[in-house]
Design a protein around this nucleic acid. Structure first.
Lengths: 210, 210
DNA sequence: ATAAATAGTGAATCATTATTCATTCTTTGT
DNA sequence: ACAAAGAATGAATAATGATTCACTATTTAT
């Protein structure tokens, strides 16, 4: 025997892998999954196209991983907002605002995560992503019901509606055609758009029954 | 001169066009846009692939038209529900139910219209489609505010949230993986899913302020 | 230094479909 | 019947971009 993988090599490979991931992330944040071709990613990462395939089974797998990473960041932020020491209604409100404002701040990535057409494996991740959000909200809603600050309701269904209402409200402002409009939001953190969305959502949660 | 387009020919061409549209509609309703390849559509319509291009500029154009037609049907149904003689709140509730129930009854088409990845030109139609719904709801909300049965609110924003909440709630049940679950709905018109969605939405609209 | 083992390369290949266009078939008016 | 005009055909082409793989380079242990 002559060659055996050594620490040094392992590190180098890990770095290359990391670089590929970062470049893919960058490409997606910049122009969506559509614009992230293997050739471009490879060039950006300073490796040959073939090298990508030493680190990932396929483009779909790479994309799925990028999606997971990007998603995790967002979900973590919302989870953080929901774990504050406060009543459920306030926590939900802060979390919803976090969700919407972050999306408006990174519109291309948000659009990719929410609405860009993607391949099946990535779409699968998207469903998980949405469910992850919904589950966080769902738990908070249950808390709220227990605390008595929310009326009894189908927590799962309400959480799904929350995700939908926010996502839909953002699709317009986020769609590539209107990136400029969204950019304004970057400099304006008292965004009336966000306020209206949250108003509807909070009413949906807290409103009295007819 | 020897040949000039005659009524008979115009009819025949119109029929061919109609047949192409119907077959495309059928393919989409059956397996989504993805499964509607030109070859298959042509075979189904009993014409050569080239013939498709005598009637439509491109596949995208054909799809965009199909999308418009399918959409119009749905939007019309909602518009109908909203034009009833009743107060705005009741009309909105009936319309929302119409929207959701029709989607569950034709899950593949609904999925294609709401969530299937499609090409840019078709995606454009989708945005219009969603806006068309939103506009209908928006007007009804304005009516409701005027009538006094809805509290003052940003009608446009609320309507967008309505569309989002419903669409999101349906994406899970509609996604191709779960076509079977949706089929149950076909035989069960007292669907609890629909009721929960509508409950949230109506609260979002009517709820008291905190 | 040498050889075994693995890593990296990138031009060539493959796969998928939409689209074209040279050709054939139909219709129409004389 | 004939020829002009247009309609229909579908095999061939084009375009795109992911993936492969024969080859070169590098690393390691002796």
């Amino acid at each position: 025997m002559a060659y055996r993988e050594t620490e040094k090599m392992r590190n180098r490979k890990a770095e290359a892998r990391k670089r590929i991931i970062e470049c893919t992330y960058g490409c997606v944040a910049d122009g969506g999954f559509r614009s992230a071709q293997i050739t471009r990613i490879a060039a950006c990462a300073g490796v040959a196209t073939g090298t990508i395939y030493r680190h990932f089974e396929s483009k779909e797998d790479l994309f799925a991983e990028i999606f997971r990473i990007a998603t995790q960041r967002e979900v973590d932020k919302v989870a953080e907002a929901l774990s504050a020491e406060d009543n459920a209604v306030s926590r939900l409100e802060v979390a919803l605002r976090q969700f919407a404002e972050r999306a408006l701040r990174g519109p291309v990535m948000a659009w990719s995560l929410i609405a860009e057409p993607v391949d099946p494996k990535v779409e699968e991740e998207r469903l998980k992503f949405r469910r992850a959000y919904a589950q966080l909200f769902e738990q908070a809603i249950r808390d709220g019901i227990k605390e008595g600050c929310l009326p009894d309701q189908d927590a799962r269904q309400s959480s799904t509606c929350l995700v939908g209402a926010i996502a839909e409200s953002l699709v317009g402002p986020l769609s590539p055609a209107q990136a400029d409009t969204a950019e304004q939001a970057e400099t304006n953190d008292h965004n009336p758009l966000v306020n209206s969305i949250i108003c509807f959502c909070m009413q949906g949660l807290t409103g009295t029954r007819r």
